[in-house]
Design a protein around this nucleic acid. Structure first.
Lengths: 225, 225
DNA sequence: TCTATGTATTATGTATACAATCTTACATAG
DNA sequence: CTATGTAAGATTGTATACATAATACATAGA
């Protein structure tokens, strides 16, 4: 399975292609925590020289996805229950901020997009394809952070969300939760529509709380194996 | 003025030394927004080769301190009123989260440190040295985020604070504001002591609001010049 | 048998060389 | 005088070479 490949379609400097490739490989679990990232090995595998590999690793380092050991190189950072709880704690706060700001700033068009995103999500849950559901979920949240008009917030929320990429399916696969998810989305939508910060914030908070429960129980399951 | 130098005392890979050097130069304004970072030039200036320079630039890029223009290289990112407002908006939210978590989690020792930090700050304001005041202020806030026990939060708050490094003096130099700052710190301290989240959060929010006012008026002043 | 030391191997850290592309300036044609 | 084309120079993008530190393994000595 350890068989990620470079996507040559992209018209980007190699360092960015490598960065995206490694990033995705880490977030999807193709590169496992603790695994060493050896430059020549990766360079051969991806068909580039060491330079772009190194530059990509520098960025992964700053993102916290790999840790550097001096004179030994990079390895994939461990994802612990603690580190995920930390991420979720921050994300909860920023998601609440997002919906609150959206209450103030969303435009008429944004509101329409949000409604159709809610409906799309609802439709998606009727099918069986988890990746379609996940995509609909992401789109919905993207519309909200976009509505804040705060680029920094958008960047941070996206980054924090991606930290949990590996677990994005656990709370979506569980069909018994679908009605709950739909209701939460609808509550957030209504809150923003009514420009009711408290309502929207409470719903967003609940939304993350539920995700946290799913993800944490999944981690404990994995640890036992 | 454009005369930053490498600090050779540090025992770190050159890329990290260069990263820290450039970072500081940008945050203090020695490297001005819009200024180009040319690799050979920096390499000669700092007495290293292009490789560590490039790796440092990759990290600055991810931090948003420089922007990359393809085939043209890096230049120092512009700091606009909008981008600072965005940063402050996020920071307000995370500072509030920090004091709320501190209410739950701070230890007895943490509480003692916080008290003495408050007193140190109060003492510092009696002197005239702004950098001592600034340092006392930073220490106080460090104790709070440390008390949350959330490493990710700590990293993000520190990063966001540093984005405003250039303006750290504007709200500290103004002596008429000192009493207000002391009172706000004291209010935060009391809130955490009483484990009163609402009180602590309100004080933290007020604290950032006041900083924002100082910084924004300073920026408008600079723009006019 | 265990420990210590030396050597070979491997990978990173840094520097440099080469290639591709962009900018700029200058010349020439309209 | 202006506009366009071309060539030279400068700068980034990528690859490779060299230096140095860490590691592992083997061998010698106690």
């Amino acid at each position: 399975m350890n068989d990620f490949q470079i996507d040559m379609n992209e018209f980007l400097p190699l360092r960015d292609v490598v960065f995206n490739t490694l990033r995705k490989a880490i977030l999807t679990g193709q590169l496992r925590p603790g695994e060493r990232l050896m430059e020549v090995h990766l360079a051969n595998k991806l068909g580039v020289s060491r330079t772009p590999i190194r530059e990509a690793i520098r960025k992964l380092e700053l993102e916290g996805l790999v840790i550097m050991i001096p004179r030994r190189g990079a390895e994939v950072a461990q994802i612990t229950e603690k580190s995920l709880k930390d991420v979720l704690e921050v994300r909860r706060s920023l998601d609440v901020l997002s919906v609150e700001l959206a209450c103030e700033r969303i435009t008429r068009e944004g509101m329409e997009e949000l409604l159709s995103a809610c409906e799309e999500f609802e439709q998606a849950t009727k099918g069986k394809d988890a990746s379609i559901i996940a995509k609909a979920d992401v789109k919905l949240h993207d519309i909200i952070v976009e509505a804040t008009g705060n680029q920094r917030l958008k960047q941070l929320v996206n980054n924090l969300s991606e930290q949990m990429y590996r677990y994005r399916f656990v709370y979506i696969k569980d069909e018994s939760q679908h009605d709950k998810l739909i209701a939460e989305h609808r509550e957030i939508y209504e809150g923003i529509l009514e420009r009711n910060k408290e309502k929207a914030a409470a719903a967003a908070r609940l939304h993350i709380d539920n995700q946290e429960k799913s993800i944490i129980s999944q981690i404990r399951l994995e640890k036992r194996m």
